[in-house]
Design a protein around this nucleic acid. Sequence first.
DNA 1: CCAAATTTGATGTACGTAAATCAAAATCTG
DNA 2: CAGATTTTGATTTACGTACATCAAATTTGG
Lengths: 341, 341
Amino acid sequence: MRPTVHDIAAAAGVSLATVDRVLNQRPGVRHVTREKVENAIREIGYIRDVAAANLAKGRTYPLVFILPASDNSFMHRLNAEVRAAAARSSVERTNIRTLEVPAFDPGALVKVLDELGEERPSGIALVATDAPEVRDAVDRLVKDGIPVVTLVSDLTGSQRHHYAGVDNIAAGRTAARLLGRFLGGARGEIAVLAGSMLVRDHRERLEGFAAVIAAEFPSLSILPVIEGRDDPEMAHMLVADALSKNSGIIGIYSLGAGNRGLIKALKEKAIDRSLTVIAHELTAHTRAALLDGTIDAILNQDAGHEVRSAIRVLKAKADGLSVIDAQERIRLDIFLQDNLP
Amino acid sequence: MRPTVHDIAAAAGVSLATVDRVLNQRPGVRHVTREKVENAIREIGYIRDVAAANLAKGRTYPLVFILPASDNSFMHRLNAEVRAAAARSSVERTNIRTLEVPAFDPGALVKVLDELGEERPSGIALVATDAPEVRDAVDRLVKDGIPVVTLVSDLTGSQRHHYAGVDNIAAGRTAARLLGRFLGGARGEIAVLAGSMLVRDHRERLEGFAAVIAAEFPSLSILPVIEGRDDPEMAHMLVADALSKNSGIIGIYSLGAGNRGLIKALKEKAIDRSLTVIAHELTAHTRAALLDGTIDAILNQDAGHEVRSAIRVLKAKADGLSVIDAQERIRLDIFLQDNLP
DNA sequence: CCAAATTTGATGTACGTAAATCAAAATCTG
DNA sequence: CAGATTTTGATTTACGTACATCAAATTTGG
């Protein structure tokens, strides 16, 4: 049987009340006594029964998710997953609130973060806009003892407790190797469709992609990045245009959203050409395109896993517990026609 | 606030004791009263607080993992993950026991399963040997109300509650497409190294692999399967032999274990040849081979995820709760040099 | 309609922890 | 050393559920 507070009391030769004072850092315990109790805790290997403690405290974990107000399918998905998690709140003792902030607006994000500093929720998960002032705001929260997890997009050099998202440099590198290998030594040009180079995850994907292409596939050259602002219409126009003008394009890497437009352009302009296409994010559209051969591979991050992981980590940090690292690593999913879920 | 048993009692106009009798299916409640209570439960949306219930019951979940006594790195890994989970037992209220049974021995497995039917643990996870008598033994357990999860290898047509493992047909198909695409239309022969065609997961991988090669890569032909019994020595010998005798081999698919031997053979016999190699299971050896270019891609199933998922599912089933399906889907990991964990 | 059987209610204890109160003991201050 | 202060102990209640006991009410059978 697992040791209880009573066992600590017996082992330390003190009363239950004193044990409680030590465990919950309440005042009124002499230094020597406190140490006696702490030693006993260590010796008998006491671990607080979090379930019982939460029951006694009537504890819930108020968590806040800060998401950008972006109108693309991935953010919708993320939002839906947060709501799904909120629907499990009563079982998980969480109390989840979602705040939407304008995308790419560090000022707005900082404002929200600072307000949350007053409110002191049990944890905060945010899709970070990578700016120094945001980093500082996050560091203030962390210093204040509030668990912070970055979601999907990380924050350079910040003190955030955890990042629940994929390694985007690795994603870009993987895309490059897949594309390069699929093209099998052919010579030609690669078009890259991104949302915006202002977003850190897109920048990182491009960085990884370009590095591997340059180092390992010298017969391929990357055209100037097409920025489609994650917007299907715009992506459609820009890609169609590029395909019309440049007949040397043999591959496309779509590292952001707006793939609906990309696919439309491909179906219009490239039925005769055998383009190799790698895209990010599994949606109804990209899935269909993968199955009909318009797209060759899809790289994906599972929004549901990211949200659930963020919640697990925030709860654990709030209780000062450790997490199972391997469990919280968000993996890059690679989908071909054959392994779609 | 979440409704409690008291709220049910009030809503149904009965006493706490009666609610308790209904909730825990104790006798001595008239049919009409039982229905009144059940309606109240449904109406106010009561959900039992599992943490409090477990506390009151002093409940633990005795779980049994049945693993084959195979001496390959994947099974070692699986074993280690079960032990790691057992180490978390006190926190998770589990009580995990591992039973090793001879591999490929349906009789031994059935015997163990039948004994467990007497013992009635909270749940059983087993690496199934795909045989009718095993299926029947599992179905007996399920009929008896014991939650059963197959792990890594599934059991055809059985009533098991859940399968915690990858879709091996999809894995084989994925391997084929990767290999085919990487080879870019070249003509030649593909060697397949398996453990044994008696194991269901290996058979399925081959089945998927062969289907896609036949359908989509007609320039490739598959050589008769090499059965290395998941043994490095044997794999080494057989692969070296095949490479010596057949200069038409341009690709290799290793769908089982024993990759250490494969890699050794490749380094000895194929330094001059540009073979494309796809292997299963990420180990220290395959990882190194992937990084130095000996292997081109690794397909992997995460043993840790499989074990943790099996435990979550068994606990949920034991409590009659539902699981988050997306969370319990075991994904096929595809690793290239660039996205290794 | 009465006795027997069944159903229901009332109540208490337990699980492991948190939190509060009050009294007793120990320590410190002057 | 008295008195003030700090530290410690003892005890109680609570969280939401499980489970047991005994009494009271209701239903059933004859």
